[in-house]
Amino acid sequence: MSPPFTISFEARDIACERGGRTLFEGLNFVLEPGGALLVSGPNGTGKTSLLRQIAGFLPLASGRFSAAGAEAATPIAELCHYVGHLNAAKTAMSVRENLAFWADFLEGGDLDGALDAFGLAPLADISAGLLSAGQKRKLALSRLFAAPRPIWLLDEPSVSLDAASVKRLDAAIRGHLKQGGIAIVSTHVPLKTKFAQELALGREHAA
């Protein structure tokens, strides 16, 4: 269903400042289509900040991101799927309604594929408010399949997932990379996904 992506992503001389303090500076990396980046480092070193900078929520203290490829004319924020600590699940709506909204809003459309991706199809008509923490997490991750976007920004995606679901997530990331997608993941859980690069924040500034 999703077309193969041809986007490459470059970060040049990125710096981040929070409350007058420099979290990191001089970050550089290039991701070719199918490339994955693992962001690691202790708490408070700016893993979440970096992902939120790429998604366009946080301003850059210096440097710039650029994307090259077929969809390069689109703003970078609109090339990204951002799955952060919060699940963006509306408790008053059913699982299907939640995903249908995002499929519509993010201009995707593969609702059934999204329901199947993390095995939520049997729960489709249940209200999202009744889901367990792990199931809500899966609902948030299913959003990745509700609309095709080349860059996945995953901030601790495995939190509150069981072992089987982590495997599924691992496979989903690998499938995305195989299609030429890009994944930038911050996680403490070892994944089978082969990360082309690792960015260790907090020790030395450059990767």
Partner: peptide, 17 residues
Amino acid sequence: ESDYEDGTLDVIATGPL
């Protein structure tokens, strides 16, 4: 408020609107 608290605002901000 609810969109801010449950992270919906984050996703909306990456949307095309």
